[in-house]
Design a protein around this nucleic acid. Structure first.
Length: 336
DNA sequence: CACACACCCTGTTTGC
DNA sequence: TGCAAACAGGGTGTGT
């Protein structure tokens, strides 16, 4: 369930459940789903059981749960989850029958729901979980999004879930961010902030984007430049900004680069508001439900259908073993 | 350093 | 109907 909106849907669904949850049992059904974990699965299991999950945090497509071990550890830890191409985290009752492609099972005792199960389900096993050490954020800002007012009113945020302080704008009356909010898992440290992060530095990203010598879509997909954008939302943002995916970054104007980033943000927020994009049962929230953004797609998967802006048929082109979808009339390579 | 590409996997859908 | 090929929203490591 890969791109930013889909991962955020999962994070938001898990946050109220995991906050303060004690891990009572861990079962690894497929070792390959621990490929990001350094050490054997017995180590993963032993260190998790008895510890407490503090919250659910997301940066781009990475999700993690700040973790307090049962026994003191030198560095604060985090349970990291990356969904890859086909991962899901499903919230199940403790006696729920095993999901078909479940790879890891976490049983927790949650303050809000009691004994529940987090099922990590992943068809292709490009995703994984890991218990990882954390490091302080270099800029001292919150490491990621832990749930506030991305959507809805500030009032809705105020009644909020545990850990709401993580992404809150600093103000005189705001409580200090908890320690976990300022630490990022080691394996996530190289991932850039995403465009919905309050600490996202738009002008710096524009400058770096224009300094690239590549096609603009490749740059948008580079998680070290900005995170959270994958193939769907890259195509949708490029369509909205009328930029060709192979547009050379060096021939992009600064104004159009800014427009593109603002369209990225708009597309991500709209998709989030519709619960993410689902084409099938593969991309679902923690309760197994699909989002609705697939009905709003203008370009992705729309080859042969009319461009919503000009009516020209959307085309699909090969791109890095995948596809790009674009309007050949609205989106042309610009040379200056 | 920045970039392009191969690779990691399995289940479902498509086409012959 | 059966089978093979094509396809899928990801990140990482390696080579240039």
């Amino acid at each position: 369930m890969p791109e930013l909106p889909e991962v955020e849907v999962v994070r938001a669904g898990l946050a109220p459940v995991v906050a303060g949850s004690v891990v009572t049992g861990v079962t690894v059904l497929d070792e390959r789903s621990l490929k990001r974990h350094r050490g054997p699965s017995v180590d993963f299991v032993d260190r998790l059981v008895g510890g407490t999950l503090d919250s659910a945090v997301r940066r781009g497509k990475f999700l993690w749960f700040p973790f307090e071990p049962a026994e003191r550890h030198d560095h604060p830890l985090a349970l990291v989850a990356h969904l890859g191409m086909s991962g899901q985290v499903l919230l199940r009752s403790s006696d729920h029958p095993a999901d078909r492609l479940m790879r890891i099972r976490l049983d927790v005792d949650s303050p809000s729901l009691g004994r529940v199960r987090l099922a990590f389900v992943d068809q292709r096993i490009f995703g994984s979980m890991a218990l990882d050490e954390t490091v302080p954020t270099p800029d001292g800002r919150p490491a990621g999004y832990a749930g506030t007012h991305l959507l809805g009113s500030p009032e809705a945020a105020a009644e909020g879930e545990a850990g709401a302080a993580a992404a809150a704008a600093p103000s005189a009356s705001a409580p200090a961010a908890p320690a976990w909010a300022l630490r990022v898992p080691q394996q996530v440290a190289h991932i850039a902030r995403d465009p919905l992060d309050p600490a996202f530095d738009e002008s710096a990203v524009v400058t770096r984007l224009l300094a690239r010598r590549t096609g603009v879509k490749r740059a948008l997909l580079d998680q070290g430049l900005l995170s959270g954008v994958g193939n769907i939302y890259a195509d949708e943002s490029l369509w909205a900004a009328r930029v060709h995916p192979e547009q050379p970054t060096e021939a992009l104007s600064r104004a159009r680069a800014r427009l593109l980033l603002s369209e990225v943000r708009a597309v991500l927020l709209k998709a989030l508001g519709e619960g993410g994009t689902s084409f099938d049962a593969q991309y679902v929230n923690v309760n197994g439900q699909s989002g609705y953004f697939s009905h709003s797609l203008a370009a992705y998967g729309q080859q042969g259908r009319p461009c919503p802006r000009c009516g020209t048929a959307i085309v699909r082109e090969a791109f890095m073993n995948r596809s790009s979808h674009l309007c050949p009339r609205c989106q042309r390579v610009r040379t200056a």
